[in-house]
């Protein structure tokens, strides 16, 4: 997967998010300091905040988009390219192929989350002063502690994307047209967030896989609030089990006609 130019291009695009944000803030803040949204304003005072802001921007659409492309392509891409039958005749084993493909998507989730954090931190250090970080709760932590929390955010976001990855894997077993399963997976991510916005459906909100996506901010409080981390992990785990079972049920006996 990482030998594919497309994968690298997507990670490159993800890396651009913190870079563009940092440059935009840098350019505007040199003209009028102290204005703009509170969160963005933090950046100009401390570069270590760039990665957090970039993550807030990336998680509703950019990250689901790239995850949708990778996870939606898993099986459908092999089918569409005519390689699925050769993998199965090799024999790769249907269950093993699903597992390997899912692990590949999970590795991409790790890579994408880390890309935002690593590039955000780098560009922040380059363009802005760095020092102890003031958290959302008002407490101040050292540079080292703040880097540790960045990694914690990366792990949180990775976990957040695991449920969507499994949904993508399942959709990918339904079709031989990879573009279709990619688009459908992205639509799922968007739909989940839209439903999460409708107050009439508030009973449903805790069950939507995107419900805790933005709650990684809880990791930026002192003391760290682990509630959302745990709830998110359980929710994503439930989605993985359900859609993993659906993917297995669909793929293990499917006629491979591609």
């Amino acid at each position: 997967m990482f030998r594919r130019r497309r994968t690298l291009a997507m990670l490159g695009a993800v890396a651009l998010i913190p870079i563009l944000i940092a440059i935009a803030v840098r350019v505007s803040s040199s003209r009028a300091t102290g204005r703009g949204p509170a969160f963005l304003d933090q950046i100009s005072q401390n570069g270590l905040f760039v990665s957090f802001v970039a993550m807030v921007v990336a998680i509703p659409l950019f990250l689901p988009l790239t995850v949708g492309v990778v996870a939606g392509d898993t099986i459908a891409g092999e089918a569409g390219g005519g390689t699925l039958r050769y993998l199965l005749v090799a024999p790769a084993g249907r269950v093993r192929l699903l597992v390997v493909k899912y692990l590949g998507s999970a590795v991409f989730c790790v890579a994408a989350s880390l890309t935002v954090i690593v590039f955000g931190t780098l560009i922040g250090v380059i363009l802005f002063p760095t020092g102890p970080v003031t958290l959302l709760s008002g407490d101040t932590v050292s540079v080292g502690e703040s880097l540790l929390r960045s990694l914690l955010v990366a792990s949180y976001v990775t976990i957040s994307l695991l449920g969507l990855s499994m949904i993508g894997l399942f959709i990918s077993t339904l079709t031989d047209v990879p573009v279709g399963s990619m688009a459908a997976t992205v639509v799922m991510a968007v739909a989940s967030q839209v439903l999460d916005q409708l107050p009439q459906l508030d009973w449903l909100h805790p069950f939507l896989f995107s419900h805790y996506w933005l709650s990684f901010a809880d990791l930026l409080r002192q003391p760290i609030s682990w509630d959302s981390y745990g709830s998110n992990a359980i929710l994503q785990g439930a989605y993985m089990v359900i859609f993993g079972a659906l993917a297995y049920g669909r793929f293990s006996a499917k006629d491979i006609l591609s």
Binding site: G81, G82, V89, A90
Partner: peptide, 15 residues
């Protein structure tokens, strides 16, 4: 299948 080699309905490879 490890003891079977197959070509089915044309080749399929990553371009």
């Amino acid at each position: 299948l490890p003891e079977v080699g197959a070509l089915v309905e044309g080749p399929g490879f990553y371009p």
